[in-house]
Amino acid sequence: MTTHQRIVLAEPRGFCAGVRRAIGIVERALDLHGAPVYVRKEIVHNHHIVGELEKRGAVFVDSEDEVPEGSVCVFSAHGVSPAVRAGAAGRRLEVIDATCPLVSKVHQEAVRFARDGRTILLVGHEHHEEIEGVQGEAPEQTIVVETPQDVERLDLPEDTPVAYLTQTTLSFDETARVVAALQRRFSDIVGPHGDDICYASQNRQNAVKSLAHDNDLVLVVGSLNSSNSIRMVEVARERGCAAHLVPDASHLDERWLESVSSIGISSGASAPEVLVRGLVDRLAALGYTDVEVDTGATEDVVFAMPARLADPVTGRVPRTPLADEAR
């Protein structure tokens, strides 16, 4: 290894407003209702957060059918289909919806386009929970596409009235290529008002581009099932930089560090800062003690918590430890 070994931390990184809100909803529900509080799917895609909430009494289930009738059930940040909502109502569940407002926007657009009689071409990963939820708004009118090649294989006339929507956590550049293919393929096509890809995903991808340009290696802290974290790794690799997804410091492979003098580090929108600090500490023990910050966009977005979680006396929603740990 070289004598000058540094770490460059991307800013912004870690929790976005939707993740912070979703985690806070589970914490607040536990404060108000006590354990257990049931959560349909992982509240956000991060193993550390899920584990910490389980310690407090959250119970994560794959389906609303697993929740005892009449219990408190939180819907995850990724959103759910109308069929899931109907199933929860049938079990008389006390539902608290933690769907990210930016995901809810995509749901509303799907409803509008379906009402207009358009075939919805939903750009994303077919088995991702967010895609399943949006597709459920109009299953008979929605087709999932992931690549430009998928677009070319569509068995639809070019004058079919279509609309496109996208998963919020995709690679901005790759999505632009798919959308361009759709616009070439169809003559009657409309899209959403503004990009569906969320501000946080775009900001973190832009920050990773900067890291990839200036460092020998990029490490992205995030869970293996975190779509936005995986996209960040792909963005770095597309720019010719070695890059790896690191769920936590224990997953660091020291072989990655051979001949590496400068490491860029970022984290996905659902990764807590404690995991970043753990990785930085492990790298410091290996000689990477010079830490710099690469500052990009400023994020000041805050999504309001549901009013039903407010303090009955003050009317305010208290801040919660896990949700606020990255502030």
Rank of each mutant, 00 (worst) to 15 (best):
S187P: 10
L217S: 08
D188K: 09
E129V: 09
V134K: 03
Q149T: 11
Q167F: 03
A200F: 01
D195G: 12
S223P: 11
L165E: 11
E137M: 14
D216W: 05
Q135H: 10
V246Q: 00
D248L: 08
S223T: 14
D173A: 11
E238T: 14
L219F: 13
L154W: 03
S226T: 14
Y199Q: 08
V179A: 05
E158G: 03
S187Q: 13
R237I: 10
I189E: 13
D150Y: 01
G240M: 14
E130I: 14
D196P: 04
Q167R: 03
V218L: 08
E130K: 11
G194R: 03
I230N: 02
L245W: 00
A243L: 12
A242R: 12
R185T: 12
F172V: 13
L182W: 01
L154V: 12
P157G: 04
R177N: 12
H244Q: 09
I143C: 03
H127P: 07
P148R: 13
H193F: 10
A181Y: 03
G240P: 11
H128D: 11
N228V: 00
V151Y: 00
H251E: 10
T147K: 06
S201I: 04
Y199E: 05
D248T: 10
V151H: 01
S223M: 13
R184N: 07
F172C: 07
A207C: 06
G240V: 15
G133E: 07
H128P: 08
P192Y: 05
L170N: 03
E174P: 00
E146A: 08
D248P: 10
R255T: 15
R255I: 13
D196N: 14
P247R: 02
A243Y: 02
P161N: 09
R231H: 10
G136Y: 07
Q183M: 13
W256D: 05
N215F: 09
C198W: 00
M232T: 03
M232Y: 00
V144S: 05
P148W: 08
I131Q: 00
T147R: 07
P139Q: 09
P192N: 10
D155C: 09
G240T: 15
D248C: 12
E152G: 04
T147I: 08
R231K: 15
G194V: 04
A200D: 01
I230M: 03
N228F: 00
L257Q: 02
R231Q: 14
S229F: 08
D195R: 09
G240Y: 13
L219G: 02
V178N: 03
H193Q: 14
T147Q: 07
I143N: 02
D150S: 06
S226D: 07
Q149F: 03
N228L: 02
L211T: 01
D248R: 05
D248V: 08
S226N: 14
C241W: 02
P161I: 06
A249N: 04
E137L: 13
Y164H: 13
V190I: 15
Y164Q: 09
D216Q: 12
D150P: 01
E126H: 12
S227A: 15
D214N: 15
I197E: 00
S229C: 13
E140T: 10
C241M: 11
S171Y: 02
R184Q: 07
L170H: 01
V178I: 14
C198L: 02
V151L: 06
E132K: 13
T166A: 07
E129M: 08
E129I: 06
D173F: 06
H251G: 04
E137C: 11
V221T: 05
H251R: 12
H244V: 07
E132P: 01
P157L: 03
L224R: 14
G136N: 06
T168W: 01
R177M: 12
